[in-house]
């Protein structure tokens, strides 16, 4: 089983002294959630788990924990893309990370489990059964289709095995194909759409804090001089925050969708970066999670790059 292998590999790495800590997912406070755990003792490796609720992108901890000395990290293919970006941008040294990569066919959005007959409180376990999620309670077993429970970003993801790893566990899994990310309302009046979205923003910065690509020591919006965006939660200030964040994420965001998952008011912030990344891929052949790309997108140029000038005479 994948979970056992994760534990064995973590144990090996800790016992041999190769790493001082393994970052992984542990059992959450409720069976439909998981929580990050930091295992520094080979005896504690059974705290590590693998289930459909392992959503967190743990790469967010690397800038802090892999600064001095080597740490192990259990990583899904998308988390690996984050690690690749961090290495390219010199926030983490490759030799300081031991990647325990896990094949993945998507993870589950816990809140979507509430739909239908399942009561969150009664859930005792979640597991995949082919293309379905098997939700077990004390008395019942319910199958929910992957299409209904997969996290939005997992629906279009076809990165199913880690591109870089020191140990690779599990195989490529296809839970459901031809799924599309649906953002209702986005295709209409975009300016109005985003103004409505950002009007809800409470400026809690959960999106920024959970993002492995947001590694700045001091974020532009925490600066007082120059005051890029005021602290007040008005729509225009929130617009400035989200628009700038999207710009800063161009070529960095690997579309893990964590920002969207954690947003308490449901702003699909990842959409902006995802859209820009698709353009960057087409125009410059650059992908944020691509281990072959040696320079950041905007820290590089080609003399024959597309010219955005209007050339009016």
């Amino acid at each position: 089983m994948i979970q056992d292998t994760i534990r064995q590999e973590a144990k090996k790495a800790l016992e041999s002294g190769e790493v001082r800590m393994v970052i992984g997912w542990g059992a959450g406070s409720v069976p439909f959630k998981t929580t990050p755990v930091f295992v520094d003792n080979p005896q504690d490796t059974d705290k590590l788990i693998w289930n459909p609720a392992c959503t967190n992108n743990l790469a967010v901890y690397l800038t802090k924990l892999a600064r001095d000395g080597k740490v192990g990290i259990v990583a899904k293919p998308c988390d690996v893309r984050s690690i690749v970006t961090l290495i390219r941008e010199k926030q983490v040294k490759r030799e300081n990370v031991f990647i325990i990569g896990v094949g993945c066919g998507g993870v589950v959005d816990a809140t979507s489990l509430q739909n239908g007959d399942v009561k969150l409180r009664e859930i005792t376990s979640l597991e995949w059964d082919g293309g379905d999620l098997l939700v077990t309670t004390e008395t019942t077993k319910t199958k929910l289709s992957a299409a209904a429970v997969l996290r939005e970003q997992c629906k279009e993801c076809d990165d199913r095995t880690p591109s870089v790893s020191d140990v690779s566990i599990g195989e490529a899994v296809v839970r459901a194909s031809d799924l599309k990310i649906e953002i209702p309302g986005l295709s209409e009046d975009r300016q109005k759409y985003w103004a409505e979205q950002f009007s809800r923003c409470i400026r809690c910065y959960a999106c920024r804090q959970v993002c492995p690509a947001c590694y700045c020591e001091t974020c532009f919006c925490d600066r007082i001089e120059p005051k890029w965006t005021a602290k007040k939660a008005t729509t225009d200030e929130a617009w400035m925050f989200h628009a700038t964040r999207a710009m800063h994420l161009v070529g960095r965001c690997i579309s893990c969708g964590e920002c969207e998952r954690v947003c308490p008011v449901g702003i699909p912030a990842v959409e902006l970066a995802r859209e820009l990344n698709a353009i960057a891929k087409e125009r410059y052949g650059f992908e944020a999670g691509d281990p072959q790309a040696d320079k950041p997108l905007l820290g590089n140029y080609q003399e024959n790059d597309v010219d955005p000038a209007h050339h009016s005479e």
């Binding site: 929580t35 990050p36 930091f38 967010v60 409470i202 400026r203 809690c204 910065y205 959960a206 920024r208 804090q209 959970v210 954690v262 308490p264």
Partner: peptide, 10 residues
């Protein structure tokens, strides 16, 4: 674990 967002307070 805490990623230092302000969601719990807000």
């Amino acid at each position: 674990k805490c990623i230092a967002c302000g969601m719990c307070s807000y």
